[in-house]
Amino acid sequence: MNSETGGTGSEDSNVVLYEVRGSVAVVTMNRPEYRNAQNSVMTYALDAAFVRAVEDDEVKVILLAGNGRHFSAGHDIGTPGRDVDAEYENRAVLWWDHVRKTGGDQRFAREMEVYLGMCRRWREIPKPTIAVVHGACIAGGLMLSWVCDMIVASEDAFFSDPVVRMGIPGVEYFAHPWVLGPRRAKEILFTGQRFTAAEALDWGMLNRVVPRENLESESFALAEQIASMPSFGLALTKKAVNQCEDLMGMRSGMDSVFGLHHFAHSHNAEVASDSLGGMDARSMKTSAEQASNTGRG
């Protein structure tokens, strides 16, 4: 899905594209050469685009897509545009900025803002959101799709959260048991294997799987159907479902796992070469491919 117009007012207005088609806003990640790896520039550009859509009374539904061959390969852990030391005004949490902090203080402050905090902020967008997923949807890509209310995927889409290979218990927005169920969550985390769109649909993670050539049209048709409903009714319904998820323990569960996540980072920093257990984008990709070739049997 290619958005052609509009920037977001970010430092790089091309890293996220924004356009409105009728009553539907299309927010498109635009780092295709890096499989839409999410750096801070992209995170804050996404946030600006979502704010723009929320404030536009003509927009009823928001689509989130990715340009190029893939939806998103996850957090940026190795491109030339990686910007872990970039300074932004915090929008998701009331905490000091991570810049010029050290050790666990730095990691905790940054990830609470740009990873867990932003995802929670976007989950509460008062307009229906639909992730439009094709190709890779890995780790941080899962987080982006999971905060959306619905997910439409193409038949070629594939998914994984391989960060256990770093010794870390899953990505920061730890929704796995709620979107996959406990046993499937354990399977995909324990093995690090990719799973297909067909499997994700069967497990209840996706709403629809469509041929790649129909992904855009099917997503827009769904968005337009939703857009015919009263906006305030949609906002209240979304809040109702989210509140029920939280009453089932999702928010408190994420809080507890976020602590384990950072304990793992600190452990790595003590016993390995860095907080990621010595893994980088290349080694993660190679490991994931080897695991997928092994298969589940």
Rank of each mutant, 00 (worst) to 15 (best):
L236G: 04
T286Q: 14
E89V: 15
F263I: 15
V59L: 00
S217Y: 03
K60E: 09
W203V: 04
V54G: 03
S160H: 01
L63M: 14
R107S: 02
G259F: 08
S219L: 00
M254G: 07
M166N: 13
Q106G: 08
L276T: 09
D274L: 03
L142Q: 04
F220T: 13
A49L: 00
Q106N: 11
E124V: 10
A48Y: 14
A223T: 00
I168D: 00
M143I: 03
V26N: 10
V179R: 14
R52A: 10
D83M: 11
F220E: 07
R82E: 10
D85K: 13
A291R: 10
E218D: 08
K127W: 06
V210T: 09
E33V: 06
S266W: 12
S266N: 14
S266P: 01
V171R: 03
Q106K: 15
P177C: 08
G278C: 03
P162H: 06
V241G: 12
K60G: 14
R208E: 14
D97I: 13
H75E: 01
E224Q: 11
E270Y: 10
H176K: 04
G135N: 02
E89F: 13
H98S: 05
R120V: 05
D274Y: 07
G253R: 03
M118I: 07
D76W: 00
R100M: 03
E289H: 10
M150K: 08
M112K: 10
V20L: 10
V163R: 07
G135F: 01
E89S: 12
M229F: 12
G68C: 10
V147C: 08
G259Q: 13
E199G: 02
W146S: 05
V15S: 07
G22R: 09
I125C: 13
A37T: 04
G117N: 13
D149V: 00
H75R: 05
S40V: 09
E11F: 15
M42R: 03
T129L: 03
H75G: 07
P182G: 11
H75Y: 05
V241W: 15
E224G: 00
S283R: 11
A235H: 09
E87W: 07
L215R: 01
F220L: 14
A223N: 04
Q106R: 14
A136V: 05
A175Q: 03
F232V: 11
D161H: 13
E199L: 02
D274W: 05
Q225D: 05
G78K: 01
A49M: 00
R82L: 04
M143P: 01
D161V: 13
G259K: 15
E216S: 08
P32F: 10
G6N: 06
F220P: 05
A86K: 14
H261K: 12
G249C: 06
E55W: 09
A197Q: 11
G7F: 10
L247Q: 14
M248W: 12
A73N: 02
G141A: 08
A291L: 03
G103Y: 01
N67R: 14
V114E: 12
C137G: 01
Q106W: 12
A288Q: 13
G7H: 10
M29E: 02
R100Q: 15
A153P: 02
R282E: 08
S252V: 09
M279F: 08
L17S: 09
W146C: 02
T8Y: 06
V133N: 04
M248V: 06
